[in-house]
Design a protein around this nucleic acid. Structure first.
Lengths: 138, 138
DNA sequence: CTCTATGCAAATAATTTGCAAGCAC
DNA sequence: GTGCTTGCAAATTATTTGCATAGAG
């Protein structure tokens, strides 16, 4: 778990509790974005049970500090993944089995300024997700 | 309300009830994607009240027929907009007031084939949403 | 007349809030 | 010790399901 995450927690006035450390460890090791419920189960399996409510609160806090990214795939659940130390990227999810795969590309850079000129919005972030059928499901 | 929407309803074995017609009229006239709750209120205001449950069922049905598109902006609600007769596009939403603006652009065409080659997925659709601050809120 | 559509009640699922006790610093 | 954290219970919000009646074709 990179030191900077802990530093940025502290910079935000947050404490590194045992529970929080366990959650961060799982999240850092996960290659793919996870839901609160998934984290809840993984914490229980790791013998570090944490109330689901606390998982939600920690994810919201980490999101506010900008340490995790919220990923909204269209199954009605919000997933989170650690942002620190990872290149900005997007995902593709299989319509059949729900599998998620990282896409290490993002063509949005140039578009952002175009959109800012067009709408006068100050663009802060974007989401880009693909949906389709994985090799096993098609 | 374009005839083709009604034709495609019928082609799907669906009936054009008064309630459904009122819902479609509001949805067609709306420039921006709407939630089930918003539609419920608008129908009530238009003196064509429809149970919220029925709104959900109609939106799900229209989505299955491919007549509406689901837009997932990150505030925990699904919005729908009529797809028929509109160019494929995306949205930007203000972090402050929640305002949504259409973006008439989509740079995904070339990317799709790149992603299909990279992941072996058959890409079916994608979502692309921007978030930022509108002129009034920044 | 047949089958879909609707309303109402109730059930789920995801997420949030209130409050008292616990732990990090 | 002081204030952020956590767990537990309960409340909210979004959405879905069951069932009997109403309406379209």
């Amino acid at each position: 778990m990179p030191d900077t995450i802990i530093e940025r927690l502290r910079a935000g006035g947050k404490k590194l509790t045992k529970a929080r450390k366990a959650l961060l460890e799982i999240l850092v090791q996960s290659a793919l974005p996870m839901t609160a419920a998934e984290l809840h189960v993984r914490l229980r399996n790791a013998k570090k049970p944490m109330d689901l409510v606390t998982v939600y609160r920690n994810l919201a806090m980490l999101h506010q500090l900008g340490l995790v990214t919220a990923v909204g795939l269209h199954d009605g659940q919000i997933r989170y993944e650690v942002r620190h130390g990872r290149a900005h990227h997007h995902h593709i999810q299989c319509r059949g089995c729900g599998k998620i795969v990282d896409l290490m590309l993002c063509p949005m850079k140039k578009l952002t300024s175009l959109i800012e000129a067009q709408t006068k919005f100050a663009v802060e972030s974007h989401t880009l997700e693909f949906f389709g059928w994985c090799p096993q499901c098609r």
